[in-house]
């Protein structure tokens, strides 16, 4: 019989209590138990960064954690970035305005990574942005639109602050 536990995880302010197998990865928990499918899975070995979430405010790879390890923790995913159903967050808006996404698969990981990065470094250089997203693979854009979006978002966020 499989090893199971009941866990309670707060995602984007909503608490999800589920009984899960202890071997369930956090990414699978978020996607298939909580049905928050915005977080994507691209490699399951911690390289591509598509599954990046904010764990207690810090970015982490959700494919490299077990769901049980998130018991009692706070998680923010791509679904929890926009202020409401109608508006985009300035970072998201900058992605649209700078063609920072094509297929959209790496995008959630890019957004969570940059959300944390821009808080810590509100006025980054291009090089700093490129290093900040070096753990997120994008196969569509060549990163140019993403980097432009991040620099644009930094300006918008500063102007808004």
């Amino acid at each position: 019989m499989s090893d199971r536990r009941t866990i309670s995880v707060t995602i984007n302010g909503e608490t999800f209590e589920r009984e899960v197998e202890t071997r369930l990865t956090l990414s699978d928990f978020i996607r298939h138990e909580c049905l928050l499918t915005g977080t994507h899975v691209g490699c399951e070995h911690g390289v591509c960064g598509a599954c990046t979430i904010l764990l207690n405010g810090q970015t982490a790879r959700s494919c490299l954690m077990l769901a049980v390890q998130a018991d009692g923790q706070e998680i923010r995913t791509v679904e929890g970035i926009a202020p409401n159903d109608q508006e985009l967050h300035p970072l998201q808006q900058a992605f649209q305005d700078n063609h920072g996404l094509q297929c959209g698969y790496c995008t959630p990981g890019m957004l969570t990574t940059l959300l944390e990065f821009l808080e810590e470094n509100p006025d980054p250089t291009e090089r700093e942005v490129r290093e900040a997203i070096s753990g997120n693979l994008c196969r569509c854009t060549g990163y140019q639109g993403i980097v432009a979006a991040a620099l644009d978002a930094a300006k918008r966020l500063q102007a808004g602050a």
Binding site: R31, H32, G38, T39, H40, T77, E79, L88
Partner: peptide, 20 residues
């Protein structure tokens, strides 16, 4: 700017593994 983007930027895309 692309019409596709708002859905994809807010996690509302639907890729094949998103079907339950």
């Amino acid at each position: 700017p692309r019409l596709e983007d708002p859905r994809l930027l807010t996690g509302r895309g639907s890729y094949t593994d998103d079907f339950h």
